[in-house]
């Protein structure tokens, strides 16, 4: 009898995730987050609130940060979706990961993938952000462990590292 509508209406979609074409099965209401996690086992993006508030599911769509929990999978056909798993070759992400480690800018780590994706997006657009700019860029990602001090310091340090490399090259 009455199957949930979106399961009943599921169709095969082709998505471009982390540079690769993948086929997934998605109903009208299936979010990108559910597809990434439950079908592709790309679990860096977390479900913290499923409402677009906490930022733990932050990913990039066509180079811009987005909430995977508020994005319908079907709306991503033709888009370039990138998750933390697909950013390992990004110099900005590498600098951020190193800085988050050395500044202990995480504790439980659950919000961290979203934090890193938001921070990378900031640095891609503004290589030398001041503290105010860092605070604005990171204000959509909730962390309940760190008190944010170390996160601001880590983003600032990553920007400095990237700036130094840029200046010397």
């Amino acid at each position: 009898m009455n199957l949930p509508s979106s399961t009943a209406e599921a169709t095969i979609l082709t998505l471009r995730i982390n540079g690769e074409q993948v086929q997934v099965r998605a109903g009208l209401r299936d979010t990108l987050l559910t597809v990434l996690r439950d079908q592709l086992q790309l679990t860096a993006a977390k479900r913290g609130c499923n409402q677009g508030v906490c930022g733990a599911c932050t990913i990039e769509i066509d180079g811009r940060p987005a909430r995977a929990c508020l994005t319908l999978a079907r709306a991503c056909e033709g888009a370039d979706v990138r998750t933390l798993e697909g950013m390992s070759d990004s110099p900005a992400m590498k600098a951020l990961q190193d800085a988050f480690a050395s500044h202990q800018a995480f504790q439980c780590g659950f919000c961290t993938p979203g934090m890193l994706v938001s921070a990378r997006s900031l640095l891609e657009g503004n290589p030398a952000p001041d503290e105010a700019a860092i605070r604005v860029a990171m204000s959509g990602n909730l962390c309940r462990c760190t008190g944010y001090v170390s996160i601001i310091a880590a983003v600032d340090a990553a920007a400095s590292t990237l700036g130094d490399h840029g200046a010397s090259s």
């Binding site: 679990t43 988050f100 780590g109």
Partner: peptide, 10 residues
């Protein structure tokens, strides 16, 4: 933290 690499890679 000894879990740094796994937590920072997702």
């Amino acid at each position: 933290q000894i879990e740094a690499a796994e937590k920072l890679s997702g």
